Amino acid sequence: MALWRIRATVDDRPGYLSVLTASLALRGVNILTVQVHTTEAGAVDDFLVDAPDALDEADLVAAIARGRGRDCWVARSEARGLVDQPTRVLGLATRLVHDPDATGAALQALLGADEVSWRPDPAGPAGGVGGQTMRLADPVGGSYVLGRREPSFTPAEYARAQALVELSAAVARRDADRVTLVLPDGTEVVVRPATAEDLPAVVELHERCSPRSRQRRYLGGAGSPSPARLRRLLDPARGLTLLATAGSGGATEPVVAMANLLGEGDEAEAALLVRDDWQRRGLGSALLRRLLGHADRAGTAAVLLHVQAENEPMLRTVRRLGRRVPIERDGPLLSVTVPLAARPGLPRQADAITRTD
Protein backbone atom coordinates (compact mmCIF):
# COMPACT_ATOMS: atom_id res chain seq x y z
CA MET A 1 0.00 0.00 0.00
CA ALA A 2 1.13 3.56 -0.72
CA LEU A 3 0.10 6.99 0.57
CA TRP A 4 -1.27 9.51 -1.92
CA ARG A 5 -2.77 12.99 -1.72
CA ILE A 6 -5.71 13.64 -3.99
CA ARG A 7 -7.47 16.95 -4.53
CA ALA A 8 -10.54 17.20 -6.72
CA THR A 9 -13.54 19.46 -7.21
CA VAL A 10 -16.95 17.90 -6.64
CA ASP A 11 -20.32 19.50 -7.28
CA ASP A 12 -21.80 20.55 -3.95
CA ARG A 13 -24.90 18.40 -4.36
CA PRO A 14 -26.31 15.60 -2.19
CA GLY A 15 -24.73 12.22 -2.90
CA TYR A 16 -21.92 13.42 -5.17
CA LEU A 17 -19.18 12.92 -2.58
CA SER A 18 -20.39 9.39 -1.87
CA VAL A 19 -20.16 8.59 -5.59
CA LEU A 20 -16.53 9.70 -5.62
CA THR A 21 -15.60 7.74 -2.50
CA ALA A 22 -17.36 4.66 -3.86
CA SER A 23 -15.32 4.90 -7.06
CA LEU A 24 -12.11 4.95 -5.01
CA ALA A 25 -13.30 2.06 -2.86
CA LEU A 26 -13.86 -0.09 -5.96
CA ARG A 27 -10.12 0.23 -6.66
CA GLY A 28 -9.22 -0.78 -3.09
CA VAL A 29 -8.37 2.80 -2.05
CA ASN A 30 -8.78 3.54 1.66
CA ILE A 31 -9.51 7.19 2.57
CA LEU A 32 -7.56 8.15 5.70
CA THR A 33 -8.41 11.85 6.01
CA VAL A 34 -10.49 14.37 4.09
CA GLN A 35 -10.69 18.16 4.14
CA VAL A 36 -13.33 20.17 2.33
CA HIS A 37 -12.51 23.58 0.82
CA THR A 38 -15.53 25.60 -0.27
CA THR A 39 -14.99 27.55 -3.50
CA GLU A 40 -17.16 29.25 -6.09
CA ALA A 41 -16.53 26.36 -8.49
CA GLY A 42 -17.75 23.78 -5.99
CA ALA A 43 -16.42 21.83 -3.03
CA VAL A 44 -12.71 21.02 -3.33
CA ASP A 45 -12.05 17.77 -1.45
CA ASP A 46 -8.53 17.08 -0.25
CA PHE A 47 -7.95 13.38 0.51
CA LEU A 48 -5.09 11.47 2.05
CA VAL A 49 -5.51 7.89 0.85
CA ASP A 50 -3.84 4.51 1.17
CA ALA A 51 -3.85 2.84 -2.25
CA PRO A 52 -2.65 -0.57 -3.49
CA ASP A 53 0.91 -0.54 -4.80
CA ALA A 54 -0.35 -1.62 -8.21
CA LEU A 55 -2.17 1.69 -8.73
CA ASP A 56 -0.35 4.65 -10.21
CA GLU A 57 -1.25 8.31 -10.67
CA ALA A 58 -3.20 7.69 -13.87
CA ASP A 59 -5.30 4.99 -12.18
CA LEU A 60 -6.25 7.33 -9.35
CA VAL A 61 -7.11 10.18 -11.73
CA ALA A 62 -9.33 7.80 -13.70
CA ALA A 63 -11.08 6.66 -10.51
CA ILE A 64 -11.77 10.27 -9.56
CA ALA A 65 -13.17 11.02 -13.02
CA ARG A 66 -15.49 8.01 -12.83
CA GLY A 67 -16.65 9.33 -9.45
CA ARG A 68 -17.71 12.66 -11.05
CA GLY A 69 -14.68 14.52 -9.73
CA ARG A 70 -12.86 17.08 -11.87
CA ASP A 71 -9.75 19.28 -11.83
CA CYS A 72 -7.94 16.39 -10.18
CA TRP A 73 -4.47 16.64 -8.69
CA VAL A 74 -2.62 13.58 -7.39
CA ALA A 75 0.77 13.30 -5.69
CA ARG A 76 2.61 10.80 -3.52
CA SER A 77 2.57 11.58 0.20
CA GLU A 78 4.70 10.74 3.22
CA ALA A 79 3.85 9.34 6.63
CA ARG A 80 3.89 12.83 8.15
CA GLY A 81 0.78 13.52 6.10
CA LEU A 82 -1.07 11.31 8.59
CA VAL A 83 -0.93 14.15 11.13
CA ASP A 84 -4.37 15.75 11.09
CA GLN A 85 -4.64 19.38 9.98
CA PRO A 86 -5.65 20.91 13.35
CA THR A 87 -2.70 19.24 15.09
CA ARG A 88 -0.30 20.44 12.41
CA VAL A 89 -1.62 24.01 12.58
CA LEU A 90 -1.35 24.05 16.37
CA GLY A 91 2.22 22.81 16.12
CA LEU A 92 3.11 25.61 13.70
CA ALA A 93 1.39 28.16 15.94
CA THR A 94 3.44 26.95 18.90
CA ARG A 95 6.59 27.36 16.83
CA LEU A 96 5.67 30.96 15.99
CA VAL A 97 4.99 31.82 19.63
CA HIS A 98 8.60 30.91 20.39
CA ASP A 99 10.08 32.22 17.13
CA PRO A 100 7.98 34.80 15.23
CA ASP A 101 10.81 35.19 12.71
CA ALA A 102 9.95 31.71 11.40
CA THR A 103 6.76 32.96 9.72
CA GLY A 104 7.97 32.18 6.21
CA ALA A 105 8.98 28.64 7.10
CA ALA A 106 5.69 28.08 8.93
CA LEU A 107 3.69 29.23 5.90
CA GLN A 108 5.69 26.95 3.65
CA ALA A 109 5.07 23.99 5.95
CA LEU A 110 1.37 24.81 6.30
CA LEU A 111 0.63 25.05 2.59
CA GLY A 112 3.40 23.05 0.95
CA ALA A 113 4.40 26.19 -0.95
CA ASP A 114 7.28 26.02 -3.41
CA GLU A 115 8.41 29.53 -2.54
CA VAL A 116 7.66 32.17 0.09
CA SER A 117 8.91 35.75 -0.06
CA TRP A 118 8.29 38.94 1.89
CA ARG A 119 7.84 42.27 0.11
CA PRO A 120 7.81 45.77 1.60
CA ASP A 121 4.75 46.87 -0.39
CA PRO A 122 1.32 46.12 1.12
CA ALA A 123 -0.94 43.38 -0.21
CA GLY A 124 -3.50 46.00 -1.25
CA PRO A 125 -6.81 45.17 -2.89
CA ALA A 126 -5.12 42.45 -4.95
CA GLY A 127 -4.30 40.48 -1.79
CA GLY A 128 -5.79 37.04 -1.59
CA VAL A 129 -5.78 33.93 -3.75
CA GLY A 130 -5.11 33.82 -7.45
CA GLY A 131 -4.53 30.29 -8.71
CA GLN A 132 -0.94 29.35 -7.93
CA THR A 133 -0.21 32.62 -6.08
CA MET A 134 -1.28 33.81 -2.65
CA ARG A 135 -0.62 37.24 -1.18
CA LEU A 136 -1.00 37.85 2.55
CA ALA A 137 -1.03 41.18 4.37
CA ASP A 138 1.62 41.43 7.08
CA PRO A 139 -0.02 43.36 9.96
CA VAL A 140 3.29 45.01 10.84
CA GLY A 141 3.79 46.20 7.24
CA GLY A 142 4.47 44.68 3.85
CA SER A 143 3.15 41.39 2.56
CA TYR A 144 4.01 37.73 2.05
CA VAL A 145 3.82 36.23 -1.43
CA LEU A 146 3.51 32.46 -1.78
CA GLY A 147 3.78 30.35 -4.90
CA ARG A 148 2.80 26.73 -5.49
CA ARG A 149 2.88 24.98 -8.85
CA GLU A 150 -0.04 22.73 -7.93
CA PRO A 151 -2.65 22.36 -6.68
CA SER A 152 -4.16 25.84 -6.77
CA PHE A 153 -4.63 27.67 -3.49
CA THR A 154 -8.12 27.76 -1.99
CA PRO A 155 -9.87 30.44 0.09
CA ALA A 156 -9.78 28.12 3.11
CA GLU A 157 -6.00 27.85 2.84
CA TYR A 158 -5.78 31.63 2.55
CA ALA A 159 -7.79 32.07 5.76
CA ARG A 160 -5.53 29.64 7.64
CA ALA A 161 -2.38 31.31 6.37
CA GLN A 162 -3.59 34.82 7.19
CA ALA A 163 -4.47 33.71 10.73
CA LEU A 164 -0.95 32.32 11.13
CA VAL A 165 0.59 35.60 9.91
CA GLU A 166 -1.56 37.61 12.33
CA LEU A 167 -0.49 35.35 15.20
CA SER A 168 3.15 35.93 14.32
CA ALA A 169 2.60 39.69 14.20
CA ALA A 170 0.88 39.64 17.60
CA VAL A 171 3.85 37.78 19.11
CA ALA A 172 6.26 40.24 17.50
CA ARG A 173 4.33 43.19 18.93
CA ARG A 174 4.41 41.56 22.35
CA ASP A 175 8.17 41.13 22.15
CA ALA A 176 8.55 44.74 20.98
CA ASP A 177 6.85 45.89 24.19
CA ARG A 178 9.66 44.30 26.21
CA VAL A 179 12.08 47.02 27.33
CA THR A 180 14.88 47.42 29.83
CA LEU A 181 14.53 50.43 32.11
CA VAL A 182 17.37 52.04 34.02
CA LEU A 183 16.12 53.48 37.29
CA PRO A 184 17.62 56.65 38.80
CA ASP A 185 19.85 54.58 41.09
CA GLY A 186 21.29 52.72 38.07
CA THR A 187 19.36 49.49 38.65
CA GLU A 188 18.06 47.77 35.53
CA VAL A 189 14.63 46.14 35.34
CA VAL A 190 12.91 44.45 32.43
CA VAL A 191 9.33 45.53 31.74
CA ARG A 192 7.17 43.30 29.57
CA PRO A 193 3.53 42.34 29.02
CA ALA A 194 2.24 39.65 31.35
CA THR A 195 1.11 36.20 30.25
CA ALA A 196 -0.91 33.48 31.95
CA GLU A 197 2.34 31.62 32.66
CA ASP A 198 3.37 34.44 35.02
CA LEU A 199 0.74 33.49 37.61
CA PRO A 200 3.15 31.73 40.06
CA ALA A 201 5.57 34.68 39.97
CA VAL A 202 2.75 37.18 40.51
CA VAL A 203 1.42 35.15 43.44
CA GLU A 204 4.92 35.31 44.92
CA LEU A 205 5.00 39.08 44.32
CA HIS A 206 1.86 39.50 46.41
CA GLU A 207 3.21 37.26 49.14
CA ARG A 208 6.36 39.38 49.39
CA CYS A 209 4.43 42.66 49.56
CA SER A 210 3.42 44.02 52.95
CA PRO A 211 -0.26 44.00 53.97
CA ARG A 212 -0.22 47.80 53.70
CA SER A 213 1.00 47.71 50.08
CA ARG A 214 -1.65 45.15 49.14
CA GLN A 215 -4.36 47.16 50.89
CA ARG A 216 -3.35 50.32 49.03
CA ARG A 217 -3.43 48.47 45.72
CA TYR A 218 -6.79 46.76 46.13
CA LEU A 219 -8.46 49.33 48.43
CA GLY A 220 -9.87 46.57 50.59
CA GLY A 221 -8.47 43.85 52.79
CA ALA A 222 -4.77 43.31 53.20
CA GLY A 223 -4.84 39.72 51.95
CA SER A 224 -3.73 38.54 48.53
CA PRO A 225 -6.31 38.18 45.74
CA SER A 226 -7.33 34.69 44.71
CA PRO A 227 -5.38 32.98 41.89
CA ALA A 228 -8.50 33.21 39.72
CA ARG A 229 -8.62 37.00 40.11
CA LEU A 230 -4.91 37.33 39.45
CA ARG A 231 -5.28 35.21 36.33
CA ARG A 232 -7.92 37.64 35.03
CA LEU A 233 -5.62 40.57 35.75
CA LEU A 234 -2.78 38.94 33.82
CA ASP A 235 -4.95 38.51 30.73
CA PRO A 236 -7.58 41.28 30.74
CA ALA A 237 -10.28 41.25 28.08
CA ARG A 238 -9.51 44.91 27.39
CA GLY A 239 -6.34 46.55 28.54
CA LEU A 240 -2.79 45.60 29.44
CA THR A 241 -0.82 44.23 32.36
CA LEU A 242 2.89 44.96 32.61
CA LEU A 243 5.35 43.17 34.85
CA ALA A 244 8.73 44.43 36.01
CA THR A 245 11.34 41.77 36.68
CA ALA A 246 14.74 42.10 38.26
CA GLY A 247 17.82 41.00 36.36
CA SER A 248 17.60 39.82 32.76
CA GLY A 249 13.85 39.28 32.81
CA GLY A 250 14.07 35.53 32.35
CA ALA A 251 11.43 33.09 33.48
CA THR A 252 13.25 32.51 36.79
CA GLU A 253 13.70 36.20 37.62
CA PRO A 254 11.40 37.50 40.37
CA VAL A 255 8.57 39.88 39.52
CA VAL A 256 9.02 43.05 41.56
CA ALA A 257 6.08 45.12 40.29
CA MET A 258 2.80 44.81 38.41
CA ALA A 259 0.95 47.56 36.53
CA ASN A 260 -2.63 47.07 35.35
CA LEU A 261 -4.61 48.99 32.75
CA LEU A 262 -8.23 47.91 32.45
CA GLY A 263 -10.24 49.51 29.64
CA GLU A 264 -13.83 50.66 30.05
CA GLY A 265 -15.11 52.54 27.00
CA ASP A 266 -13.48 55.95 26.64
CA GLU A 267 -11.84 55.54 30.03
CA ALA A 268 -9.42 53.02 31.45
CA GLU A 269 -8.48 52.34 35.04
CA ALA A 270 -4.85 52.01 36.14
CA ALA A 271 -3.34 50.51 39.28
CA LEU A 272 0.16 49.67 40.50
CA LEU A 273 1.69 47.21 42.95
CA VAL A 274 5.40 47.56 43.71
CA ARG A 275 7.23 45.27 46.10
CA ASP A 276 8.15 47.14 49.29
CA ASP A 277 11.92 46.88 48.80
CA TRP A 278 11.53 48.34 45.29
CA GLN A 279 9.44 51.34 46.28
CA ARG A 280 10.80 54.93 46.23
CA ARG A 281 13.15 54.05 43.37
CA GLY A 282 11.20 55.51 40.44
CA LEU A 283 9.80 52.18 39.26
CA GLY A 284 6.15 53.10 39.88
CA SER A 285 6.51 56.34 37.93
CA ALA A 286 8.10 54.54 34.99
CA LEU A 287 5.36 51.91 34.89
CA LEU A 288 2.57 54.47 35.11
CA ARG A 289 4.03 56.41 32.19
CA ARG A 290 4.14 53.26 30.08
CA LEU A 291 0.50 52.50 30.91
CA LEU A 292 -0.50 56.02 29.93
CA GLY A 293 1.44 55.74 26.69
CA HIS A 294 -0.34 52.51 25.81
CA ALA A 295 -3.74 54.02 26.63
CA ASP A 296 -2.95 57.11 24.56
CA ARG A 297 -2.00 55.02 21.51
CA ALA A 298 -5.22 53.03 21.93
CA GLY A 299 -7.26 56.24 21.72
CA THR A 300 -8.38 56.26 25.35
CA ALA A 301 -9.61 59.69 26.43
CA ALA A 302 -8.60 59.46 30.08
CA VAL A 303 -7.11 57.11 32.65
CA LEU A 304 -8.64 56.89 36.11
CA LEU A 305 -6.77 55.99 39.30
CA HIS A 306 -8.45 55.28 42.63
CA VAL A 307 -6.09 56.24 45.43
CA GLN A 308 -6.46 56.33 49.19
CA ALA A 309 -6.08 59.87 50.49
CA GLU A 310 -3.28 58.75 52.83
CA ASN A 311 -1.34 57.07 49.99
CA GLU A 312 1.15 59.88 49.59
CA PRO A 313 3.67 57.79 47.55
CA MET A 314 1.07 57.17 44.83
CA LEU A 315 -0.07 60.79 44.84
CA ARG A 316 3.56 61.83 44.49
CA THR A 317 3.87 59.48 41.50
CA VAL A 318 0.87 61.17 39.87
CA ARG A 319 2.30 64.64 40.47
CA ARG A 320 5.53 63.61 38.76
CA LEU A 321 3.59 63.17 35.53
CA GLY A 322 3.60 66.96 35.22
CA ARG A 323 -0.04 67.08 34.13
CA ARG A 324 -3.02 68.96 35.48
CA VAL A 325 -5.28 66.21 36.78
CA PRO A 326 -8.80 66.59 38.22
CA ILE A 327 -9.18 64.94 41.63
CA GLU A 328 -12.49 64.05 43.26
CA ARG A 329 -12.76 62.98 46.88
CA ASP A 330 -15.25 60.54 48.36
CA GLY A 331 -14.37 60.13 52.01
CA PRO A 332 -10.95 58.48 52.28
CA LEU A 333 -10.88 57.66 48.54
CA LEU A 334 -9.57 59.94 45.79
CA SER A 335 -10.42 59.52 42.11
CA VAL A 336 -7.66 60.94 39.92
CA THR A 337 -8.42 61.46 36.21
CA VAL A 338 -5.44 61.76 33.85
CA PRO A 339 -6.61 63.24 30.50
CA LEU A 340 -5.04 61.82 27.36
CA ALA A 341 -6.54 62.19 23.88
CA ALA A 342 -7.87 65.64 23.02
CA ARG A 343 -11.64 66.06 23.11
CA PRO A 344 -13.99 69.07 23.21
CA GLY A 345 -13.49 71.12 26.34
CA LEU A 346 -10.50 69.06 27.49
CA PRO A 347 -7.24 70.16 25.83
CA ARG A 348 -4.44 67.66 25.85
CA GLN A 349 -1.61 68.37 28.26
CA ALA A 350 1.97 67.66 27.31
CA ASP A 351 4.26 65.81 29.66
CA ALA A 352 6.43 68.24 31.60
CA ILE A 353 8.83 65.54 32.77
CA THR A 354 10.62 63.13 30.45
CA ARG A 355 12.83 61.35 32.96
CA THR A 356 11.82 57.87 34.17
CA ASP A 357 11.87 58.79 37.85
Rank of each mutant, 00 (worst) to 15 (best):
residue 2 A to Q: 15
residue 3 L to A: 01
residue 5 R to K: 08
residue 6 I to S: 01
residue 6 I to H: 07
residue 11 D to M: 12
residue 12 D to N: 09
residue 14 P to N: 13
residue 14 P to W: 09
residue 33 T to C: 04
residue 34 V to K: 10
residue 38 T to Q: 14
residue 39 T to C: 14
residue 40 E to R: 15
residue 41 A to Y: 02
residue 45 D to E: 13
residue 46 D to P: 05
residue 49 V to C: 02
residue 53 D to R: 12
residue 58 A to N: 12
residue 59 D to P: 15
residue 62 A to R: 11
residue 65 A to N: 05
residue 65 A to K: 13
residue 66 R to V: 08
residue 72 C to T: 15
residue 72 C to L: 10
residue 72 C to G: 14
residue 75 A to G: 07
residue 79 A to L: 14
residue 80 R to A: 07
residue 81 G to Y: 08
residue 87 T to Y: 02
residue 93 A to T: 03
residue 94 T to V: 06
residue 95 R to T: 08
residue 101 D to T: 09
residue 102 A to E: 00
residue 107 L to T: 05
residue 111 L to Y: 12
residue 122 P to E: 00
residue 123 A to H: 00
residue 126 A to C: 01
residue 127 G to P: 07
residue 127 G to L: 00
residue 128 G to A: 07
residue 129 V to W: 02
residue 132 Q to M: 08
residue 134 M to T: 00
residue 136 L to N: 04
residue 136 L to M: 03
residue 136 L to D: 06
residue 139 P to K: 03
residue 144 Y to K: 02
residue 148 R to N: 11
residue 148 R to F: 01
residue 151 P to W: 03
residue 152 S to C: 07
residue 158 Y to T: 00
residue 162 Q to M: 05
residue 166 E to W: 02
residue 166 E to A: 13
residue 170 A to I: 00
residue 175 D to G: 03
residue 176 A to E: 13
residue 178 R to M: 00
residue 183 L to E: 02
residue 184 P to H: 08
residue 184 P to Y: 06
residue 187 T to R: 09
residue 193 P to E: 07
residue 197 E to K: 10
residue 198 D to P: 08
residue 202 V to A: 05
residue 202 V to E: 01
residue 205 L to W: 10
residue 206 H to E: 01
residue 208 R to H: 11
residue 216 R to D: 06
residue 218 Y to M: 08
residue 220 G to W: 13
residue 220 G to K: 08
residue 223 G to Y: 11
residue 228 A to F: 09
residue 230 L to H: 06
residue 232 R to I: 02
residue 232 R to N: 13
residue 233 L to T: 07
residue 234 L to P: 10
residue 237 A to R: 15
residue 238 R to G: 01
residue 238 R to Y: 02
residue 239 G to H: 04
residue 242 L to D: 03
residue 243 L to D: 04
residue 246 A to E: 01
residue 247 G to M: 13
residue 253 E to V: 03
residue 258 M to S: 07
residue 271 A to R: 14
residue 272 L to Q: 06
residue 282 G to L: 05
residue 282 G to I: 07
residue 284 G to W: 14
residue 288 L to E: 03
residue 290 R to H: 05
residue 292 L to H: 13
residue 293 G to L: 07
residue 293 G to K: 12
residue 299 G to M: 12
residue 299 G to I: 07
residue 303 V to I: 12
residue 303 V to E: 11
residue 310 E to C: 04
residue 311 N to K: 14
residue 316 R to N: 15
residue 316 R to D: 11
residue 319 R to Y: 05
residue 320 R to P: 08
residue 322 G to P: 10
residue 325 V to N: 14
residue 333 L to W: 03
residue 340 L to N: 09
residue 340 L to R: 09
residue 340 L to A: 08
residue 342 A to I: 10
residue 343 R to W: 10
residue 352 A to C: 10
